[in-house]
Nucleic acid binder design. Structure first.
Length: 660
DNA sequence: ATTAGGG
DNA sequence: CCCTAAT
């Protein structure tokens, strides 16, 4: 097997997060020209045609086209990148059925003289990223196979928040076999992929492919809310969820019946329980200079782990003969490999780790404190119950415990970078074998849940917080997180104002005693346990500025036209639906009516509340008038002179300041 | 798809 | 914030 180092063709280093996005209006326009469904096929057509093209090329120029290796450069307009990663299997189609396989394809400037291709490109472009996940359940061990295809256009239209772009990540693949831009391999893979999901059989295809397109998450004013990229990684982080929702709606027609629509999901979720997406924010991203792909596909990602709590690991070379414990600060830069090469000792330091998901159940009435405690307990139960460390070399699991490091090929060489660790629940806590017919997606999910809930159920696991740390010495990260961060963090974990505030609710609950950087826990609905994915939208308090905007909009537009209000004032606030606005208005009116003492939460400026009352009264009256005129119209068949509907629509009507 | 109103 | 009924 040949391990190819990742090639950096310029755009690999490209920080997608920096890409400015086209104005919303633009994106919108283009989007409308190409429906998601279209693009679904477009994407594959594109892929297929590309594969064909490549095949052609290789056939016609078997002797080795000089430009082949530089297709990106020489052809310029055709830049195609593919990355195949898998853990255990060599490069062959079989990887779709064994182990896991992740492939990402990024097409850039895919414009060819071929008309169809152009169209495809356009579609792909309009949908910045399409992600397709092929899943298959292995009946034997409920192991899921995933092939992820990602299409991205480049440049200029890169979804600035598509962490996928150019890279894929399955949590363990850092060192996984990678193949990129290998004409031969590319061809093979592309064909494989294309064959897997032939456009010819959309239905069938749809059955195995979950496609989601990521829409641009970056809103503009007002309420600019730069989406916290991290959120992409969070389970649906809500935002994702809502985006998915929108998408799924559009997909409806082509979706297989088995697809669990968000609508249905929601119905299953009672307000009794909240499901909290448990996840760790991916600080890795920032930590590693953004080079590490975001942990962005939680659900599918999951599949890879069979409920193992795969932690992140990152070792650094250290050359200290004395101990194996960590002293990271010093070795951060110390690549003194050469000097230490003489040493026969290798020192590892685990930089960080994370727990992908954690599910706990907690009644709505639980206090914040108890929630934290519960999370702590869950974590403790999870890892405190005994965990195993897995060793990955070049993405492959090294199982032979008796082998010497040198034998295993682990030495003070560059290959230390290819070394990884996983943390898995110990045998005792290993989740029961899952052999279910449930969608793969839910499989590990369930398992995780069971695992956890059962742990929680056990009273034995009480506030073992102090025990946690001692039990996991190797988990202890003595680094100072602050200094530890490379000169990177900014954009990603520094959401702007609003974002910061709003995401706070989602932000992981730090668990003090452990090294867990961040953790979010969620309560789950019983039904959810039964493998229904559901999520309640997180609570996002309206900020003053939002309230202000809302009031303003209502003043101008009036109540009862929430869609217009949404469009006018919250166009770019993806997380605010017209229902939200309506609800907010409702509460605002209520708040305005009650006494100051009865109000809770962040106080809304009285001035605004006053305006709320005025506007409310005005529009109530206005509506009444309209009703009257309608009645009048019906009775006498004469148009009412007082009908101001038209004016309203144009935003002419307003609450006269000082009215009332 | 929106709106209105109850929970 | 959710859900449902009615538009």
């Amino acid at each position: 097997m040949v391990f190819k180092k990742r090639l950096d063709y310029g755009f690999n280093a490209f920080n997608v997060h920096d890409v400015p996005r086209a104005p919303r209006s633009m994106r919108r326009r283009s989007q409308s020209k190409c429906t998601v469904e279209e693009s679904q096929f477009c994407a594959f057509e594109m892929l297929a045609s590309l594969a064909g093209k490549l095949l052609q090329e290789s056939e016609s120029s078997a002797s080795g086209n000089a430009s082949e290796g530089h297709e990106c450069d020489s052809i310029g307009k055709n830049c195609f990148k593919q990355e195949i990663q898998y853990e255990d299997k060599p490069l062959k189609p079989k990887c779709f059925e064994q182990g896991r396989c992740e492939a990402s394809v990024a097409a850039s400037e895919l414009t060819t003289e071929n008309g169809d291709d152009s169209k495809d490109f356009r579609c792909a472009k309009n949908n910045a990223i399409l992600e397709c996940t092929l899943t298959k359940t292995d009946p034997a061990c409920s192991e899921e196979i995933n092939g992820d295809l990602k299409y991205g256009s480049f440049p200029g239209n890169v979804d600035g928040h598509s962490p996928y772009f150019g890279e894929s990540y399955n949590g363990k693949t850092e060192n996984a076999f990678k193949q990129e831009r290998d004409p031969t391999g590319l061809e093979t893979q592309a064909l494989n992929i294309a064959n897997k999901g032939p456009p010819k059989d959309p239905v069938n295809f749809d059955r195995v492919v979950k496609l989601l397109s990521r829409r641009d998450p970056v809103p503009s004013v007002p309420f600019t809310r730069r989406r916290n990229d991290i959120k992409l990684g969070s389970r649906d982080d809500e935002e994702n969820f809502s985006r998915l929702k929108r998408l799924s709606k559009r997909f409806k027609a082509s979706r297989p019946p088995t697809h669990i629509g968000d609508r249905r999901i929601r119905k299953l979720l009672t307000s009794k329980y909240w499901k909290v997406a448990a996840k760790l924010k991916d600080f890795e991203h920032s930590r590693f200079g953004g080079k590490r792909p975001l942990y962005c596909k939680r659900k599918t990602y999951y599949n890879y782990h069979r409920c193992q709590y795969d932690m992140l690991y990152k070792q650094r070379k250290i050359f200290d003969r004395k101990s194996v414990t960590s002293s990271p600060e010093k070795d951060m830069n110390g690549d003194k490999c050469s000097t230490a090469a003489m040493s026969d000792r290798v020192k590892f330091s685990i930089k960080s780790f994370r727990i992908p998901e954690l599910y706990i159940e907690v009644p709505e009435t639980a206090t914040v404190g108890s929630l934290k405690r519960t999370v702590m307990e869950a974590v403790t139960a999870l890892i405190g119950g005994g965990i195993r460390v897995g060793l990955l070399l070049q993405g492959k699991k090294v199982r032979d415990d008796s082998r010497a490091l040198s034998q295993a090929g682990i030495s003070c060489d560059d290959n230390l970078d290819a070394l990884g660790f996983t943390l898995e629940p110990g045998p005792a806590k290993a989740p029961p074998t899952m052999c279910s017919e449930e969608p793969p997606l839910l499989l590990s999910y369930d398992a995780a849940l069971q695992n956890l809930t059962s742990s929680l159920a056990a009273p034995a696991v009480n506030t073992g917080i102090p025990n946690c740390t001692p039990n996991l010495p190797f988990l202890t990260n003595s680094e100072n997180p602050a200094t530890d961060h490379e000169p990177v963090s900014s954009k990603i974990d520094m959401p702007t104002d609003q974002s910061l505030l709003e995401s706070r609710a989602l932000v992981p609950v730090p668990v003090p005693a452990t090294n867990v950087e961040a953790l979010t826990a969620v309560a789950v609905n019983q039904k959810f346990q039964k493998s229904e994915l559901a999520q309640r939208r997180i609570w996002r308090p309206f900020s003053i500025s939002e309230v202000e905007a809302l009031v303003q909009a209502v003043e101008e537009i009036g109540t009862g036209r929430w869609r217009d209000i949404k469009l006018r004032a919250f166009e770019s606030a993806d997380h605010r639906t017209y229902v939200n606005l309506k609800d907010k208005w409702k509460t605002l009116v209520h708040t305005a009516k009650i006494s100051l003492q009865q109000r809770r939460g962040d106080p809304v400026p009285q001035e605004l509340l006053d305006r709320v009352l005025v506007a409310h009264a005005y529009w109530a009256q206005h509506q009444a008038k309209k009703q009257q005129s309608k009645l009048h119209h019906h009775r006498h068949g004469t148009p009412s002179i007082t009908d101001t509907t038209e004016a309203d629509r144009k935003g002419v009507a307003r609450v006269p300041i000082g009215t009332m």
